[in-house]
Design a protein around this nucleic acid. Structure first.
Lengths: 336, 336
DNA sequence: CAGCAAATTGACAGCGCTGTCATACGTGCC
DNA sequence: GGCACGTATGACAGCGCTGTCAATTTGCTG
């Protein structure tokens, strides 16, 4: 039969309430007692019943990860974040629930409400692009559900962030150092923070190098392979082609490389290409893609950790920053 | 404040137990009463408290989806299955929990036990390749946890399956119809059902066409882009190159197309390439990839549905089959 | 060593639901 | 009419834990 808290209590010769206190890491338990209780738990392989804890304690020990499965960049990105969130939840014996939500749909809030009413998550983790969806944030605050974000645009919440603008700037500086001057940029989906920051970094680096922006070299994309191909075709049709293309993510960069092949341009000899994200694909490409590594898994983990700190009453939680790292590989070279 | 079952009971002038019966779709409730209760629930926007239901009813209303995040084919494949499972669970007000598990690790069973003891899932959905991991299945049966599988190799369980062998055969027959005779095959990870079935379909089609198998044309891969590139290089180095390559999945097929570019081979003019899975990438490639569409999302949904049928006492559940469909696109053409 | 605050522990009710069993009410049969 | 039986409903306890508050012990002060 299942071992219950009561059984542990008997074994440790304490009251059930004391075992509960130990289980929940509460104060005012003597070291001696705590040790004894922990030993008994260990010995009996005690597993608290999550439903009973939820019911009595009025908390669910559930963290929901919200994402937009409609227009999302790379799904491997989300999968990695999910993995990280899961790891953090596991470490603190919370369980994770994933909830796809469509930002564009008009019943977004209704679905959010249903999620809250049906599952009572103790908190939620938000992933781009819904990290910045105002009605969502508003409703979460109204319903008093704590949240942490991965790569939010605002500065007020808690969660995790990477300095994408600095990373983009570093990427472009790398191209500049290779002698490139006509450097194109493919923008991602317009209102995503990722697109803004990466564009800003590109501009910053170009301006710092004293290069005026050539509007023809800055092309709108949509984070997809296809949009990368399309944008590249536009660029290659230009009278004066760029010698390097910095795409706002790896999928588009891959598209650029394809289009280059189509045009008989050898990468990196005739054209340098670089991306952002360091998806698994980037390493597998030939030539391997120069890109920015974004530690998605770790970011998911850290965001969840901040949330858990709040949920477990360990202070307010912060907006932590993770470092980026340039992965210089074979797709960028000195200007011909 | 929260609306409780008791409140609904009062509103409908029945006992709490009767409301419970209606909630759980039990028999022996008169139509008249049932209608009245449902109306009250609706009017009050009643949401049963999952923890209370779990605790009292000794079931969790949780379905866990198990997957191997170690050597998995395309992660978008898993994400799609997850989406389908989630949809089915939602439809029946179950919640879904995802659990990565490493088949190769020696604490696999311990982790499985922990999952069961900690979260008490009512049932689990298994995804390839752990669908066929005997110790897992054994333990699940021992602990009396129902499960349904996506693409299991065995015939005894419940879940969903596609006739991958027939699909592979159809794919190769398509190449044969285009006049190809030297058709290569890239095999996926050895013990995966997917690899076996696709290879078997290839052999079946070749044999039916009276073509003896040329061992040099059947190359081991690992479902990855990189392994596709490597295998293709081997093939292209052959004195007598294949005119078509059937890769066991799209990632490897993409690798083949890259390698083709490297060797100056135009696809499909000089080489036909086809894959399996119809990943999003396949459509975006240029030329777009001929492949087999596997309705992963739907398969996830159906597998979960079979499991839910069992959990909800709706009979035994079956191994249902979904149809495949050949997506003939631009990467295959008549033999030169 | 009394006297008091702080630290530690426990008794008990109750979270919101369902299982079990009892009860009430027809219905059909001899 | 009396009885057995099936259907519909309800009373009640209890699932395994935690919140509240009271009781007890400890440590310190003058």
């Amino acid at each position: 039969m299942r071992v219950r808290l009561e059984d542990v209590a008997r074994a440790a010769s304490v009251s059930p309430k004391t075992v509960s206190r130990v289980l929940n890491d509460e104060a005012n338990v003597s070291d001696e007692t705590r040790k004894r209780v922990l030993a008994a738990m260990e010995a009996m392989d005690y597993r608290p019943h999550p439903s009973a804890r939820s019911l009595a304690g009025n908390r669910s020990f559930v963290v929901a990860m919200l994402y937009d499965n409609n227009d999302n960049p790379a799904s491997t990105y989300l999968a990695e974040i999910q993995d990280g969130v899961l790891e953090a939840c596991d470490a603190h014996r919370y369980s994770m629930m994933v909830r796809p939500l469509r930002m564009r749909s008009d019943d977004f809030i209704r679905r959010l409400d249903a999620l809250i009413s049906d599952h009572h998550p103790d908190g939620v983790v938000l992933t781009p692009p819904i990290t910045d969806y105002a009605p969502l944030l508003k409703r979460l605050r109204e319903r008093n559900v704590p949240y942490a974000s991965v790569s939010p645009q605002g500065d007020d919440g808690i969660g995790v962030r990477m300095d994408e603008q600095a990373a983009a700037r570093a990427m472009v500086e790398h191209l500049l150092a290779l002698g490139h001057r006509r450097i194109a940029h493919l923008i991602g989906i317009a209102d995503h923070g990722a697109s803004r920051w990466r564009l800003a970094g590109y501009r910053e680096a170009m301006a710092a190098a004293g290069l005026p922006e050539d509007p023809a070299l800055v092309v709108q994309g949509a984070f997809t392979f296809g949009s990368g191909v399309a944008a590249a075709r536009e660029l290659f049709a230009l009278k004066s082609r760029p010698t390097a293309v910095f795409a706002a993510n790896d999928d588009m960069a891959t598209g650029v490389m394809w289009a280059a092949g189509e045009y008989g341009l050898k990468v990196p000899h005739d054209l340098s290409v670089c991306g952002f994200d360091d998806t698994p694909l980037a390493r597998q490409l030939w030539p391997a893609l120069t890109t920015v590594q974004q530690p998605s898994r770790e970011m998911g983990r850290l965001a969840a950790l901040q949330l858990l700190n709040v949920l477990r009453g360990r202070g307010p939680g912060q907006l932590v920053q993770v470092p980026f790292s340039l992965q210089v590989r074979d797709s960028t070279a000195r200007v011909p």
